[in-house]
């Protein structure tokens, strides 16, 4: 469904991605793990069109993404749940979800999607008329995920959903991801610092380090590989 082929990208003077190739098949749950500064968020921004790659190819659903302007990519079926939540703070919870359903597909499936989102994360229903800026970090993360689901995407991209959350809340979020996966069978691309949780939920994983893919494999292979630990801790 998504092919990332030898992608290079840079932020002003800093090279961030160097020849990254990643393949996501339809229905697959792929995790990209790696320490901070490895280029995970930049990779997502490149897929969404906010960062323009200096070389390489991006193909989504048979279409070359380079020729698609950033705002049109959501309409192709890519939902990006960004790092640090980035909900719309002055909009209410419901309005945030409506913005998620800005795509035609999202509007068509609005009723059933809303039901699913509010059932999965009932706290959003309780707070539906509250401005999103007043929610706690964990609630904002749920809203961000709900907003992504509301677009009825083909591919859901999650950038560090556990970042800055208390461990119990992070666990809760991961449980919701497993639920979502079970209920919808969506194709999911997850970026995470917390390797263990990420690999546990995913089918296949990539380890990104300073802009390169240094390891890839199935969940079991990666967990058994001590180089993953080294990539993080250095020894």
């Amino acid at each position: 469904m998504l092919t990332i082929d030898r992608l290079d990208a840079a932020y002003s003077v800093l090279p961030v991605l160097k020849g990254v190739s990643i393949e996501v098949a339809a229905g697959q749950f792929v995790a990209i793990v790696g320490p901070n500064g490895a280029g995970k968020t930049t990779l997502f921004k490149t897929i969404s069109g906010i960062v323009i790659p200096s070389a390489g190819r991006l193909v989504f659903d048979g279409q070359d993404l380079m020729s698609v302007p950033p705002s049109a990519r959501a309409h192709l079926g890519i939902a990006h749940v960004p790092e640090g939540r980035q909900v719309f703070p002055s909009l209410t919870v419901m309005e945030n979800l409506e913005m998620g359903a800005y795509t035609a597909a999202g509007r068509r499936a609005w009723r059933s999607n809303l039901d699913m989102i509010l059932t999965l994360m009932p706290v959003l229903a309780e707070r539906r008329h509250q401005p999103a800026g007043t929610l706690s970090g964990g609630q904002q993360q749920m809203l961000a995920i709900g907003r992504g689901l509301a677009s009825a995407p083909k591919l859901l991209m999650l950038d560090e959903p556990s970042m800055g959350l208390a461990p119990a809340m992070a666990d809760f979020i991961f449980e919701r991801l497993i639920d979502i996966r079970r209920q919808t069978n969506l194709t999911i691309l997850l970026v995470e610092q917390r390797v263990a949780e990420a690999l546990e939920t995913a089918d296949y994983g990539y380890v990104l380090e300073t802009g390169r893919v240094v390891l890839e494999g199935t969940n079991a292979t990666l967990r058994a590989d001590d180089r993953v630990r080294q990539a993080y801790l250095g020894m």
Binding site: P35, D171, R194, V195, A196, E197, R223, V228, R229, L233
Partner: peptide
Amino acid sequence: VVEAYLGKKWGAY
């Protein structure tokens, strides 16, 4: 530290 960096479940693996 391992938990903060690699996640709670890494230790178990």
